[in-house]
């Protein structure tokens, strides 16, 4: 009889529900989930795992879910944004600042992480040149490397690489094309035409002759300067020679 009971017990197996595999992959962070959320100029695919946001892509760049999944093999399942993450994300999109949104950059190298973290500090409606990031992260010679690190930004828009421009002040390139970069800057209240016009005149900094402080032209302090007190500089050495000191908020780099 024990023999048959053993056989019966062997038959009491049951396949795990199909949801188990996906839940484990998501729970371990080996899979990301993704959803479509409203963005500043169009909706975006956003992927996340328990550590934070991993990916952000404007919908116009991606065809459909299948296309998104094939470009981002870790993002294998449509999901519902956890409510805590959703409210932080809403706030980030409202304010244009990453703020409390957790991001998972764990698959990136230390240099790229440093570049992206620094980039995330640039306030909405302001721009900085590649060289500013290079200087700020203690690597002033690495301007090109900064450019390529930003070009491979996995979380554009949320990490605002569109706010980083060429050293001469021209708007420069963008992973999703220069027009989207201009549109994003416009959505933050900047005027791409004015920016490019200054670049053509080689104006890199502006100062105020009342405070004798010079800034990047889009620094919030520069923008407060009244027109009759506004002075333009082509380089920091020109500004310093005129007796101006660098703004402590936007920290203009040579």
């Amino acid at each position: 009889m024990n023999e048959t009971i053993e056989t019966v017990l062997q038959g009491l197996t049951k396949k795990a529900p199909t949801s188990v595999y996906g839940n484990v992959m998501v729970g371990t962070g080996l899979w990301d989930e993704y959803a479509i959320v409203d963005g500043p100029i169009e909706s975006m695919y956003v992927a996340w795992n328990p550590r934070g946001i991993t990916t952000c892509v404007p919908v116009s760049i991606v065809g459909d879910d299948a296309d998104f999944e094939s470009r981002h093999p870790r993002s294998s399942r449509r999901g519902q944004l956890p409510s805590a993450l959703a409210s932080k994300l809403d706030r980030a999109l409202d304010t244009g600042r990453l703020g409390a949104v957790p991001v998972d950059l764990s698959s990136l190298g230390d240099f790229q992480k440093a570049v992206l973290r620094k980039c995330a500090e640039i306030p909405p409606g302001e721009i900085r040149p590649y060289g500013w990031i290079a200087t700020e992260i203690g690597n002033p010679g690495a301007v090109r490397a900064v450019g390529s690190a930003l070009g491979r930004n996995p979380i554009p828009i949320l990490i605002p690489c569109h706010r980083v421009v060429r050293t001469d002040g021209s708007i420069g390139n963008y992973a999703y094309g220069p027009q989207m970069k201009r549109d994003l800057l416009t959505s933050e209240g900047l005027d791409p035409i004015t920016i490019e016009e200054k670049a053509r005149r080689h104006v890199r900094f502006t100062g105020s002759d009342t405070t004798l402080i010079y800034c990047y032209p889009t620094c919030r302090h520069a923008r407060r300067t009244m027109e009759q007190h506004n002075v333009e500089f082509r380089s920091s050495s020109e500004a310093e020679a005129a007796g101006y000191r660098a703004c402590k908020v936007c920290r203009p780099a040579a």
Binding site: T13, K15, A16, P17, V20
Partner: peptide
């Protein structure tokens, strides 16, 4: 996953709980 689920299901006798514990 299948053997974990089968064993846990026999012990806890509840499908959803067995799936949760397996995960």
């Amino acid at each position: 996953q299948d053997r974990l689920y089968s064993g846990v299901l026999r012990i806890v006798r509840h499908h959803a709980d067995a799936a949760d514990i397996t995960q």
